[in-house]
Design a binder for these strands. Structure first.
Lengths: 333, 333
DNA sequence: ATTAGCACTTAAAGGTAATAGGTGCTAAAG
DNA sequence: CTTTAGCACCTATTACCTTTAAGTGCTAAT
């Protein structure tokens, strides 16, 4: 591909992103100081290379998936956020009082707001969380609360009723054993060690150890079960995009966005770069692009993804995520 | 309105609910053993009374809001759920291990599933929750967890960092004061009593009482801030309804369902009956009907609402909510 | 290598007519 | 007095046709 073809492709992609209609050769004459016939020749070449497509034999060109891909990899220029968007982000960042999950949720809202696309988060407790302590707080003769804390500051509580024939002190005793044995264990390993290391010991010291064991197993439940925190924000934002003008298309997309099973197909990133998945690459829907980046915040880590049409404003979205990324890194793990 | 008119209205409403197209006079001849002209006369009468409407001068009739209202109040017959739907509900009810919020969420899913409408819950901690105890659990020199429990079994925890110049024991001392003074106070009153009864006392006993006071205030935050638990399930279900065949309509509805501000306009019921709000009565959208009933479950109370088109299958929806209601009552407050 | 010119293609827009499904009203029948 | 047949009339929907706008590919000349 020669230079003129590159800049032609760039122009076509950017023009299509703005106008959302197939681009004809005449539109580009001025910019390239040549006749429409010349442009047509070049366009035909780009089409043969697979970067452009036509809807029908006599229509203008639209970028193909490969075209978008070439664009984001080689042609796209970094973009600055405008003042207004910047301000919104900064307002978020300056609020120190948010909990982790609130901060992420707020992020999604702002991203969705300034991009007009849908944003989602796929979160999970970080593997770096290790058990710090477990506390048993009695409420009355029959009820107690188990409090589980990790070193990264995640705290969960769970309430239990215990059978009257089990002495509350037995429960407390076991909590002490667990505290001695398991503190420092990564959360993801707790279930296993509870079963193989702790259970044999308490089975000797406590009579109805099965019931009591169950309590502790349940107490860790929130951490053990693959606690995927999925949020989808701004589903209706996508309806502002002109590609969603047909009821069937709208229904298809909204149903997908509502279906957690489907959303989970957007898998987590494995690094903290910004990655772009166009159309069929997205693993979610052939008509959308998914842009992802990872975060790690207060003991929780995951991926933030933006879902937009394939003719997404790539520059802008990447700019937003860059700023977000920088902020998250400062705020630190 | 004479008997024939009543049964005519009933027939028209039910037929329209099924067919979703304006009902013409010919369709009803057979059923009423008379000519279309007779039906037309009666229809004209019903229209004059305000129970029927026409889209244009020569179209069939559709029920007006008043028509639907008359129908649900006087004409509708109770309906039995079919076996399949019943089974789904029973499967839910038999699962004892669900937490309150999970149970409600699951309810919404099932309702939405069997009705093909959208369902929402507006929940709140019951006023009957009174403070049972507050515990302070130290994590290390700087961090602690405050655990707040109510008699109805709601437990919340919140983590804090405390300034190094404040002694952890001071915090524990204050928690003891609060436990002595406020146990038994309705959750909704805690903020007030904290301010007017507790603050004056601790201000004498603790030096930096403002900071410590803040910790306790925050600990109660989840209860104090009007903690409205709003869930909307099955937004896309509404798109299966034939009235949503135009992009603009779809967009309008989906945006509304996504907007918590809007959803909150569907206010809570004030009793446990099933109430029906048709069109403009719904306070949400002129094109929908909202059916509501209250629940009270495990210290949380609120309203479950079903949002469907005005030509909702009223009998079926009421049947579902009736069963749900009975179950919730058994399960008790 | 570029360009003017031309035949050709298609989607979208506009116009007209036909059709289907309905009404209201009048006058006759029951 | 109620019911009904009959008819003129109304409107949305559909189908069909034509025109227009936008664009292409190809050829031959520059």
């Amino acid at each position: 591909m020669d230079d003129r073809q590159k800049s032609l492709l760039k122009e076509i992609v950017e023009c299509y992103i703005k106008e959302v209609k197939p681009i004809g050769s005449k539109h580009l004459c001025d910019k390239f100081h040549c006749s429409s016939a010349t442009i047509r020749n070049e366009m035909a070449a780009l089409e043969k290379m697979g970067y452009l497509e036509k809807n029908h034999i006599s229509s203008g060109r639209i970028p193909s998936e490969a075209g978008y891909r070439y664009y984001v990899e080689h042609l796209m220029e970094p973009k600055e956020l405008n003042g207004e968007d910047m301000l919104k982000l900064q307002t978020l960042f300056s609020n120190k009082n948010l909990t982790v999950s609130d901060a992420i949720e707020k992020c999604l809202e702002i991203i969705s707001d300034i991009t007009n696309y849908t944003s989602i988060s796929l979160g999970e407790y970080s593997d770096e969380n290790v058990l710090r302590q477990i506390n048993i707080i009695p409420l009355d003769e029959e009820k107690l609360v188990a409090l589980v804390c990790t070193d990264k500051g995640i705290v969960k509580n769970k309430q239990f009723s215990i059978p009257t024939d089990i002495n509350m002190m037995e429960v407390v005793k076991i909590s002490e054993i667990i505290n001695k044995m398991l503190v420092g264990t990564p959360i993801s390993m707790v279930a296993e060690r509870l079963e193989y290391d702790v259970k044999p010991i308490i089975s000797k010291q406590v009579e109805q150890y099965e019931a009591v064991y169950g309590i502790f197993y349940d107490a860790f439940h929130d951490f053990i079960s693959n606690n995927e925190n999925i949020h989808v924000v701004g589903k209706s934002k996508m309806l502002n995009q002109p590609e969603y003008s047909e009821p069937a298309e709208i229904k298809r997309l909204i149903s997908k966005l509502e279906d957690e099973e489907q959303v989970r197909k957007i898998e987590k990133n494995d690094n903290r770069d910004i990655s772009i998945y166009i159309g069929s690459e997205s693993n979610f829907d052939d008509n959308v692009t998914v842009v992802k980046t990872n975060y790690s915040l207060g003991g929780e880590e995951g991926t933030i993804a933006i879902i937009g049409p394939k003719r997404m404003e790539y520059g802008r979205v990447v700019a937003v995520l860059n700023i977000l990324n920088k902020w998250l890194e400062e705020k630190g793990d």
